[in-house]
Nucleic acid binder design. Sequence first.
DNA 1: AAGACACTCAACCGCTCAGCA
DNA 2: CTGCTGAGCGGTTGAGTGTCT
Length: 271
Amino acid sequence: MGRQPCCDKLGVKRGPWTAEEDRKLINFILTNGHCCWRAVPKLAGLLRCGKSCRLRWTNYLRPDLKRGLLTDAEEQVVIDLHAKLGNRWSKIAAKLPGRTDNEIKNHWNTHIKKKLIKMGIDPITHEPLDRKASSPATTSQSVVTAESKSDEATKQQSPQNNSVRNASPDGSSPTESSTNTASTGGTSSSSHDQDPLVKWLLEEDPLTGDEPWLSFTDNVDVDEFSSIAAGLALPWDGATVDWLLDYQDFGLEGSSMVDSHMVNSSNGSKF
DNA sequence: AAGACACTCAACCGCTCAGCA
DNA sequence: CTGCTGAGCGGTTGAGTGTCT
């Protein structure tokens, strides 16, 4: 790759996480929360950079994560939101509780993209492939606005330009307006604006930001966390938490074992 | 059975943004 | 206003795994 690692300090471990590292990170965050990711590895006794810890937690260890493939309904939501928002995976993920941006991004690239192509829909423009060359206009079948199309076109023309993220979180910046003006442009009312579900998804954040593990600052123990999780219908029951914290003690190797456990433990429906 | 190829997804990287002094 | 720092985001990589020949 030739890139400089983000954490080029000697002694900073990279690569796949071990069960022991997962255990340390889980233990630390469940008892202390994460006030400052940079400090987490040091305090948790991990030879990782904070960035790596944050990624591991948010993409894999977080207790509210669903595991396994996206359901058809979730997939449809992703497609709809992608048509509206483009590659803003974090925004899309925010509308799908239990899903991470990384997961959605991966799923998009590996499954949905192909599915759409198979269906004759351009995954970038969300327009029928056979109409792409002949007419840029939107159709009733189209699930994207002309604006988001230009958004994608802009991005494609300047692959080094990450400026889509110049948009403010509420999508109101000039950049946002110029590249993804679905809410302001004349074609703002795609078919999904009439879809109550999509409308809701575009307006509401299912996650409020006050998830319990974000505010563990008072040495909440695992049992307490388990009950909180149960109360919130989080996917981790007490047994799972206990198991998760102990699974490497049974000689299970690698975090992939967590996956299989999570999937198998609930009739194959993720966790 | 074994090698080649395809696919998946965890993890990495660089960039940008937000908050603060 | 400016510069610094930490957090978050999206794009990309590559190891592991599955499927095909």
